[in-house]
Amino acid sequence: MLEIADLEVAFETRMGHVKVVSDFSLSVARGECVGIVGESGAGKTQALLAVMGLLPRGARVSGSARLQGEELLGRGAGALDEFRGARIAMIFQDPLTALTPHMRVGDQIAEVLVRHRRLSWSAGRERALELLRAVHIADAERRLRQYPHELSGGMRQRVMIAMALACEPDVLIADEPTTALDVTVQAQILALLAELKRTRGMSLVLVTHDLGVIAGLADRVAVMYAGRLVEQGTARAVLKAPRHPYTRALLDSMPRLDVPSSEPLRAIRGQPPDPRALPAGCAFHPRCDLAADLCRSARPRLRPTGDGMVACHRPLGAAAGEEGPTS
């Protein structure tokens, strides 16, 4: 369905050429949910904004992103509109800034259909009502006539999802869709996304820093660090038996209900690196407990393991003969 290959994103800044995404390849099958995990600055959002053609002018994008075989990268805004919103849609962390403040919610949803599907405004509004019901907004007739600021955060995110669904896209990209919400509302939105994926056979790309959010929805998980994929595999493999020490560390740093509260949280020491000054070798080595000399000098390549991929010289749970080159 969506095939991203060798994606690279760089910005020209006063400090020179800064690469924020490198060698990023990912494929998403029909009806599949792929979770992309990583800390702030890992390049998750930049990679997907590049796919959507939403990066600012100064960005340099190379590589390829194909939607059902058709290239998305390098198209002008006009040519992209045939895809964006229609066949591939994106929702964001903060629905209030993504919605138009002075337009009624119903009209914003209808506008998508008027533009992409050439519906009349009245038909568009009728469809908007159906969509609000499909995302389980109570009292949908009244909500249709309200403005974004009159809605709660959870309801705004539902409106964003309704708008994204308007043209029945093949792929929905959700960038930290629940990070700004209360845990209870977060659970509701995640349940809604799970339902939509199941009932509509839609492909879903879910970007988040929270592995708990990924675990409920994703079939496969890709872990990013410092602009690169460091691990990829089925959700079960990555979350239950991670191969990359970074994935393990992310899991360990989560507060869990099933360990005694007297046990300290195992934080990852230090900070994610500055993309302008990446460490030599493996970018994670300064924060990694397993780092050896090789990790400080040579960047590990993404290599196949069992049913996934890992970029690490010293992967966890490595079977004999699976170790990287040691010289």
């Binding site: 659970a187 509701q188 349940a191 959010v213 675990a215 994703a218 079960r236 239950k240 869990r256 209900l257």
Partner: peptide
């Protein structure tokens, strides 16, 4: 609270507190 376990978390999403 989301739990990072794909064997547990999908079921937790199926009984979510409704409303706000």
């Amino acid at each position: 609270i989301p739990v990072p376990d794909p064997d547990v978390q999908p079921a937790r999403l199926s009984h979510v507190l409704p409303g706000e």
